[in-house]
Amino acid sequence: MKLNQIINLHKGLTAFVVIGLMIFFDNFTIAPYVYLALHGTYGLLWLLKEKIFPDPYFKEKINFLTSVTGFIFLGSYWIAPFILISSQKSVPNVVIAVSISTNIVGVFLHFASDAQKYFSLKLKKDLIKEGFFKNIRNTNYLGEILIYLSFAILSMSFIPLVILAIFFFIVFLPRMTKKDKSLSKYDSFEEYKKKSGLILPKLNAL
């Protein structure tokens, strides 16, 4: 089994999980519908991305135990909709608006930068330091973090924020560090590193 199969399964099931929670807790207020639209659409876009510009990193083979563990780990992202829907809480319009705006920015940065990376490397295996990667070396990860931050905002709970922080330090940060080590083979990387931020732009570069 490959890592992308586990990830794709999780992404594809998300909309059904949210709908199931809405039915089980009989909660059809605006916030759950907004959550369904945001997270469900993100899952669909991810599956489309896998068909159009897949990430080769996720093609690695994993054993059964790792597959199960990975799926459970990813399943922690479903805690946000569970909290939102089961609590029957009324979400203020301003929170919904902030969540949607954060999600839109995140989706744009995540998918657009991933597309740039995929097609740039397809044309030439070289250091990408223009466009989305001019001031930030990991714009795609920044976008993904903003996407899950939007879900946490909508849930109005600190627990999804803690989960996101765990993912950042266990998954995102090690990958970004590994990427920097890989890119260090390019002669211009050190200069590029001085001008760009790991996940946020450097103030002196703006």
Rank of each mutant, 00 (worst) to 15 (best):
V171K: 12
V34F: 03
V171E: 11
P160N: 13
F158T: 07
E50P: 01
I147K: 13
S87C: 05
S182D: 15
S184Y: 02
F151R: 08
V91H: 01
L127W: 03
D114C: 09
P32V: 04
K11I: 03
L65V: 14
S157Q: 05
T66A: 08
K122H: 07
A115K: 15
I62T: 10
V94C: 01
V171S: 15
Y118R: 06
F189I: 01
Q116A: 01
F82H: 04
I83R: 03
F172P: 02
N140E: 06
L74W: 11
E60M: 10
F25Y: 15
Q5A: 06
T14F: 15
V98P: 01
L121R: 09
T66H: 09
L9I: 10
M176T: 03
F111R: 07
I163F: 12
W46P: 05
G70A: 11
I83W: 07
I72F: 14
I72E: 05
I85F: 11
M22S: 02
H110I: 00
I30A: 07
K89S: 08
F73I: 03
G70P: 02
I145D: 02
Y77V: 13
S184W: 11
F189C: 02
L3T: 09
I128R: 00
S150W: 08
G131R: 04
S90C: 00
L206R: 14
G106V: 12
P32D: 11
K134N: 02
L183D: 08
V107I: 15
K193S: 04
I19D: 04
L84T: 01
L142C: 06
F28V: 00
M1H: 08
G106N: 07
W46N: 09
H110W: 14
K185H: 06
P201G: 07
K202L: 02
L65D: 04
K59T: 08
K194Y: 00
G20M: 04
V91P: 13
K194S: 07
W78Y: 05
D26V: 04
Y148P: 04
A112R: 13
K49A: 10
D114Q: 13
F168Y: 15
I145M: 12
L45I: 13
L206V: 10
V98H: 02
K124C: 05
A97I: 14
I79L: 15
P54V: 08
I166C: 10
V162W: 12
K185W: 03
Y192T: 02
I153Q: 05
E144I: 03
L123R: 14
T102G: 14
E144D: 14
I163V: 13
E191L: 04
N4A: 03
